[in-house]
């Protein structure tokens, strides 16, 4: 008997792999998977993890200026959670055979992508409300879908993250509600913040389905279970009522309710702005990268000290290093 050529064998294994996905089975780290599935997952999980880590920066900006001790403790806990989320996802990505340090290095070198929303500045305290309510709210819609992703370690990280995001969204909405029911100036601050964050939040779901090159493959392999536009619509439908309840206006004159579909239809999204920010020309791209690089460089002595201490405890010589 002759061995089948490698390409034929791969086609067979791919067919078996896709049949497993169609049956709703979970793919685990040691299972065979097409190289392309592995690559797409690494790309997506790394971007996701980077987004969590860079996402600490806009909010970190307000920790020292939170208006009360209660708000400060909440914000600290939230920012710590985002760091934790980054770690869950990096750890999931490492099960695919990459080293976390290489992923980090790509971020530090400015070669990696992360969610474009974090390239917008946080100008007022109300932005802490808008981020929790809208940015974390949008993330929950996306991550609830990803919690059913075909890759086990990714899906399990998402389950854990979704539980924590609910606190993030609630605390943000509470900040917005408090400001909206405050003085005229406080309400104006909340509205102005909502005006700035609404459209970038809608862009978080990625380009429209017709312009999303990776979607077809990611859907076929069960990594994504819903399209960008479907998720965006779900987020809009959820948020309209929440804005109304706290008497704030979504900044979209074209927003209308469509009886037939039961959906709230938004006006056109400025995809040119989205592409500008993704390409590195948003308001804060350079600032975010510089802050990450500085934090990494400033932490070098801590990492070195931790290794030296472990070496000493283990009775090994540090001279050899």
């Amino acid at each position: 008997m002759t061995q089948p050529p490698a390409a034929t064998e791969d086609l067979q294994r791919t067919a078996e792999f896709e049949a497993r996905i169609a049956r709703g089975e979970s793919i685990e780290p040691k299972d065979w998977m097409p190289e392309r599935y592995r690559k797409q997952l690494i790309r997506m999980m790394a971007q996701h993890a980077h987004s969590e880590v860079v996402g600490m920066l806009p909010e970190g900006n307000w920790i020292t200026r939170a208006p009360s001790l209660r708000r400060k403790m909440i914000l600290l806990a939230k920012v710590q959670d985002e760091g934790g989320h980054g770690l869950y996802i990096y750890c999931g990505a490492e099960t695919l055979g990459v080293d976390r340090r290489d992923l980090e290095q790509e971020l530090l070198d400015g070669k990696a992508k992360y969610s474009s929303i974090f390239n917008y500045p946080t100008l007022t305290w109300a932005d802490m409300g808008a981020i929790g309510w809208l940015v974390d709210g949008a993330a929950i819609v996306n991550q609830t879908m990803l919690a059913k992703a075909s890759y086990g370690p990714y899906a399990r990280a998402m389950v854990r993250i979704c539980k924590e995001e609910n606190f993030h969204k609630r605390q943000g909405y509470e900040i917005m509600a408090t400001l909206a029911h405050g003085t005229d100036a406080q309400k104006a601050m909340a509205q102005e913040s909502l005006n700035r964050w609404w459209w970038p939040s809608l862009m978080m779901f990625g380009p429209p389905d017709k312009d999303s090159p990776n979607s077809e493959e990611l859907t076929r392999w069960g990594i994504k279970r819903k399209s960008n536009d479907e998720l965006r619509q779900r987020f809009v439908n959820l948020t309209v009522a929440q804005a109304k309840a706290i008497d704030l206006m979504l900044p979209d004159a074209d927003l209308t309710y469509d009886e037939a579909s039961g959906d709230w239809k938004t006006g056109p999204i400025d995809w040119d702005e989205f592409r500008r920010v993704v390409k590195g020309n948003g308001p804060c791209n350079r600032e975010r990268l510089a802050a990450r690089q500085k934090a990494h460089a400033d932490g070098a002595w801590v990492r070195a000290a931790a290794l030296a201490y472990a070496d000493k405890q283990a009775g090994r010589s540090t001279e050899a290093a």
Binding site: G84, Y88, C91, E94, R160, Y309, A310, Q313
Partner: peptide, 21 residues
């Protein structure tokens, strides 16, 4: 899940911070 750490004690502390907040 998993954590990176220099030794067992460090791993326990990181595990607490990452998986038991």
């Amino acid at each position: 899940g998993s954590v990176h750490a220099t030794d067992a004690e460090h791993a326990l502390q990181n595990a607490r911070d990452v998986y038991a907040r």
